[in-house]
Nucleic acid binder design. Structure first.
Lengths: 221, 221, 221, 221
DNA sequence: CATGAATGAGCATTCATTCAT
DNA sequence: TATGAATGAATGCTCATTCAT
């Protein structure tokens, strides 16, 4: 019985933690991290103020907890999808789509991710050095594969490219959160991928050597 | 004499405002917006606390004021440089370089721009709807010109491209601010431009139609 | 047990609110509203600064709260005493006595009432339009009764008389608070009532018509 | 020339002091003493902030200065009017009328007098011990005269009566400042005087001895 | 005399966190 | 576990006053 109770308790504990998470996302998305009090979150989660501290070290930890949980879920889901694919270009496409779909389907979450999680250099560093690095690693791996298979130019730096791609997609997401007119975030996947894969320029018969870019001038026939 | 005094006062006033700006950038870059007290800024600027309020509405306005001033300077400098150039591709290159150089040459400023100015959805919206829009407009204009001159593919959406480019460059800047090992931000200009101009893919003799991307698969001969 | 705890908590809460009230009266009577800090009141009430805000909206509400509580108690006590009496003249006398006794027996309270509560036109208006109106209503009622019973001249306006009586008694109280030599406030009841009931003039066989007062001259035989 | 300039300067100085006084009355009547900043007064008087301090010790002194000036004018005007009269009852009447007319004809001034000047126990004490004492002295003198001439009952205490009369008139003024419906303050003179002179009671053939009041019961035939 | 920029002490209020129940 | 009353440190901002010009 004890173990049965124990497992029920475990479940209830997880449920409550989840409830607090969701309450925090909901409230913080509207009021921002600094505009949200612990009491507001507690009320939204229907627990007492003090109860929050049984599940989180402090207010900041709550934000970090949300972030890590979501990010872990996002990355593992992403990985499981990616792993089933063969073509690295296709994988790249899926990553962008998953990224945009995950945020585009939950505005509150997107708001937390794009805005609230970044108001603090320590969060940013933590983010940058853990989960974001995982993201970059995945993309880097895919790009390397694509390079080995000859689909992506061998000159491009996979790590820098991962950052550039993330940055571009991230900006799409932020812009969507701050949008004045409504549209679907996922629709940004296609043009994003088009530019990253095919580039802006019209003529690639004589692909630009880095040197020629270096010269500050492109030879155009 | 009165006018002379007047102009001297004007200069002193600007000097003091400037001093406060610089002090704020310096202090906030280290401690973050919320980690910085008004008193700290005042002390760093060698003025009394109350003096800040002769030049700024409130603490938040101080941050916004810094942002607007820097951004205006950046944009007008950028425009004057751009205007002297003929080739739109070259212009695009210069924009990216100027962006990275401006931030890469002043780490504190970069920190403020990449992190502190974004801790608040209201700042973000304000930013997004004023200065950032100007930035996008400039890039959009350049891309359109390039399209008219046949240098950039007519299929790409100039506005979305402006966002993507900004996002990629912005991520470069943020990564540099959060870097663990030292490097020059400006060095990111070349690979960024290479990917945006030439794309990732190896073969562009038969450029991807959007439809084929849509299919989730690139036809590679 | 829960209800028992509940009631104990209720009592403790009331006790604490009372303690804060009394501390505020004590401290403000000595230093005035603007000369008193919230911290001083909290310290005097042996609670933390923040605790005050669990019981009061803000510093101003604290003053208003004191006022309303005291005034309600005063009015209801007064009414219960009045109701037991039959003779309206006697009631009038009791009202004056109760008024002077209430203030004369608690100098700090009198100070708050006569001085601190009046430093603000909004307080004055609020006072004037709620509790003071109740006071006036009671006196007016008594005067009307006395008029119906033929004890008070039918020419006098009960509402104006209520104000005049309050003003006279109020001035007695204020003078007592500001006194340089000590005396009992309650001793002012008798002369006050004497003048209001009997008037100043010696001869009333031919009571002054309002018209003759109008003429600016009293006909004295 | 020096003396000529001197006198012109004297006049200008008085003019400026007057301008500041009037500005202060105007602004404080609307915003209250604590709701008014020195800068606001300076702006309303069209002088620099610092200039105020050439004419007044400090903000508080400004209020006191207004009060003393007005009060002196009021008392000396009152005295000159009173002195020309013979009948003490008539004098009493005139005092009440002058009091109500002075305030009733200048709402801002009335507001300052009835509300703002009283938000501080030190002002009150100062007021009570100087100008108000003069007022009481005048009334007391008049009452004594009336008593000597047999117009006012010898039993009444002139000093207490002066306070009561002031209190009643003062309450009329305060009520008028706080009024919700408009009326003329001067109209309160007649009923006020009627009650003070003739009392409330109908029957005065056997004027109440203090003792009978003491008994707590009035003998009514 | 006049100015008004500069000063900096002072204070109400908030809110993350604790802990007795 | 859960509660929520109590805590008290922390801070943005105001504004009366000064003084160099």
């Amino acid at each position: 019985m004890a173990s049965k109770n124990g497992s029920i308790r475990e479940i209830k504990k997880l449920e409550k933690k989840q409830r607090i998470h969701e309450a925090a996302i909901r409230v913080m998305a509207r009021n921002g991290y600094h505009g949200t009090t612990v009491s507001q979150i507690a009320k939204a989660a229907r627990v007492a103020d003090g109860t929050l501290y049984l599940y989180f070290e402090n207010k900041d930890d709550l934000l970090v907890g949300i972030f890590d949980e979501i990010m872990d879920r996002f990355i593992s889901e992403g990985l499981s999808v990616i792993d089933e694919m063969a073509d690295p270009i296709e994988k790249l496409k899926r990553i962008v789509e998953l990224h945009l779909k995950a945020l585009g389907s939950d505005e509150d979450l997107a708001c937390i991710f794009q805005i609230e999680l970044r108001h603090n250099i320590h969060h940013m560093k933590r983010f940058s050095q853990s989960k974001l690095r995982q993201y970059f690693n995945i993309v880097e791996r895919v790009i390397r594969d694509a390079q080995e298979q000859g689909h992506i130019r061998s000159e491009v730096n996979p790590w820098i490219t991962a950052k550039l791609l993330f940055g571009a997609v991230d900006e799409m997401a932020t812009n969507w959160v701050l949008r004045t007119r409504d549209y679907n975030l996922i629709d940004m996947a296609k043009p994003t991928l088009d530019i990253f894969l095919n580039g802006l320029c019209t003529n690639h018969e004589e692909p630009q050597s880095e040197a020629s870019i270096e010269e500050g001038r492109q030879t155009l026939p």
